[in-house]
Design a binder for these strands. Structure first.
Lengths: 221, 221
DNA sequence: TTATTTTGTTTAATATATCAAACAACGAGT
DNA sequence: ACTCGTTGTTTGATATATTAAACAAAATAA
């Protein structure tokens, strides 16, 4: 006698991973995980796998969603790219949101302490100093920097960088930070937190050195 | 005879309800989640807000994405429902995935800058001060703290060590940090990076205040 | 076997999205 | 007042998605 265990797993951001909470792997569960995790899969493939998990026929899914079975067939073959309106109607039949449908997925180590002089310098060190906490190797989930900007020091415009988040605290001096369409001048104790996909720029607008400790995730080095 | 067992975990991000279609007849929860989802912003509104954050004109976005400005205009007005192919091309210009675009919990700029006095205090503030950068709400991927330890200030042994990583830079004073079976005394400019599953403890062993900026992931608050 | 149902696919007509270009509204200069 | 450039919108033509219905293959039943 076989037993299927279904788990509605908490989704962190766009994260979805059934397998981790499964105490017992069943073929259908693996199919669910696969269908939802693989970001490279086409819309058609995802929809087909999703439908088969529910054991729906194309016609039954058509009836439940209000979309024609022929359309569903062509979508699954990637012969057409459905409008989001149609796709939403189809996903409603599963009680699945667009965000969930498109969602992608989401270790003790050697060194713990790092002396100030040993921090790896990532910038030129003159007008701009970015000293990295921790090694560049390994499977790390964030990057912490000890930054120093000389007067006039400027990162320049960082256009369309990678996905992630960035935050920090100003220790000393003043810095002008531009993020997206907002900007502000921060002093000692002030802080920031933003999505690093937004174009951002740091510039020392004061007369003294500016010092910042920052963190960003994921590490991009 | 086989049997189905459903385990419903809370959903962190968006609503996820397999049960709706498989139970075939209990619309209670599903109705709520669907209403919540429908109340969310339309595709057009989301795209317009997203574009304005990047300060792109419709024509510039058109150039970057390979979709016509007229189409973008009509999408933003919800006059048409774009195909996922077109929408994907547009989102590629932002480096944003479909999953992220449709996830209900990203809001344009929830706040980027935080004044020193506005940082949320997580500790008592006397012998130990932990001031958090950024809001406690939302779906964040890391936590950045501005920490201050009075002489003798001590975090005590961390009892519940969650999975994640932790790193920081000592700004001022000296602190003794114990991680696993190692320990060291760090001064200004020194730093640390460790797996937060290891038991860890911070203690100010100097005569002056000690100041640290730290980051950990994932946030546990 | 043959007939019947069910499944997925395809076809032709229709509806809609997308494009290329024109339009109107708003500002910044002369 | 202007022009000139830019922004968002709209229009007519074309490309594509969606439909309704027909088609083909496989399973079921007699």
């Amino acid at each position: 006698m076989s037993r299927l265990i279904w788990i509605l797993h908490p989704v962190f951001d766009a994260d979805f991973d059934f397998a981790r909470t499964l105490n017992r792997g069943t073929p259908s569960m693996a199919a669910v995980t696969k269908a939802k995790r693989d970001a490279s899969k086409s819309v058609g493939t995802r929809l087909r796998e999703l439908r088969q998990i529910y054991a729906f026929t194309q016609r039954e899914l058509a009836r439940r969603s209000g979309v024609t079975n022929g359309t569903i067939s062509m979508i699954e073959q990637d012969a057409i790219s459905p409008s989001v309106a149609s796709l939403k109607k189809i996903l409603d039949a599963f009680g699945l949101s667009l965000g969930e449908f498109f969602s992608d997925n989401w270790q003790p180590d050697a060194g713990v302490f790092f002396r100030a002089k040993d921090l790896k310098e990532l910038a030129d060190g003159e007008s701009l100093s970015l000293r990295q906490v921790g090694p560049s190797t390994g499977n790390r989930k964030m990057q912490v920097l000890h930054e120093r900007y000389a007067p006039g020091g400027d990162t320049g415009e960082a256009m369309l960088s990678h996905a992630g988040e960035e935050a920090g605290v100003v220790i000393r001096g003043t810095v002008e930070i531009a993020v997206g369409n907002t900007r502000d001048v921060l002093g000692p104790g002030d802080a920031y937190y933003f999505d690093s996909r937004l174009p951002h720029r740091f510039r020392n607008v004061g007369d003294d050195d500016c010092e910042i400790v920052s963190a960003c995730t994921p590490p991009t080095f």
